[in-house]
């Protein structure tokens, strides 16, 4: 198993003076996101950008069928210089919580976990050639994938302000 860990763990290293995990040089297995079983019944609420505790964001298209996914500015900053991004395959079916790709920075490899189930409709191929783009505009041009949604996300999602509060607490 390669030294992989989630964006969440890299982000934790950014904030806590003494990271809770032994060291960035120790082989670490990636963590599955904790899944709070909370039903999301209002799709309209997803049209606003939402954030996960693993530092991904999703945003629903106007027609409510496609979800754009990326990593947060906070995560991009925590990862540092990104040198490689592994994108998911188009048409791949993904389930909530799956690692659908990875972001490689100098110090670590971090999985990108999808907070929503569906089929990968499109990927941002520009990132393959210009991975550093993700440090510049992670919540805009440097989106990672678009997913055709099959069901409502079940995991915990936060609004921008809730997420900001969450990262400040971390």
């Amino acid at each position: 198993m390669a030294a992989r860990y989630s964006v969440a763990r890299a982000a934790r290293q950014l904030t806590s003076a003494a990271a809770r995990k032994p060291s960035p040089f120790v082989c670490q297995r990636w963590q599955q996101a904790s899944q709070a079983q909370r039903l999301f019944s209002v799709s309209a609420a997803l049209k606003e950008k939402k954030y996960t505790e693993d530092h991904e964001w999703i945003e629903m298209s106007a027609d409510g069928k496609t979800c754009t996914l990326g990593i947060s500015e906070y995560a991009a900053k925590a990862l540092g210089d990104v040198v490689y991004i592994e994108l998911p395959q188009v048409e791949m079916e993904v389930s909530e919580g799956d690692a659908i790709g990875a972001v490689e920075s100098v110090k670590s490899a971090s999985d990108i976990l999808t907070p929503i189930s569906g089929t990968v409709a499109e990927v941002n191929s520009d990132l393959e050639n210009k991975p550093a783009q993700i440090n510049k505009d992670p919540e805009g041009d440097a989106w990672i994938a678009k997913i055709t949604v099959v069901e409502e996300p079940k995991g915990k999602l936060m609004s921008k302000s809730e997420y900001t509060e969450f990262t400040e607490e971390a």
């Binding site: 390669a2 030294a3 920075s105 100098v106």
Partner: peptide, 29 residues
């Protein structure tokens, strides 16, 4: 090529058989 290989990654031959493993790895600045 492509993705950086980190500690623990397997080295395999053409036939896909394990012939070693990575002990340190990073993108070289």
């Amino acid at each position: 090529e492509g993705s950086p290989a980190r500690e623990g990654a397997e080295i395999v031959n053409e036939a896909g058989e394990k012939i070693g493993n990575v002990t340190s790895g990073c993108p070289s600045p």
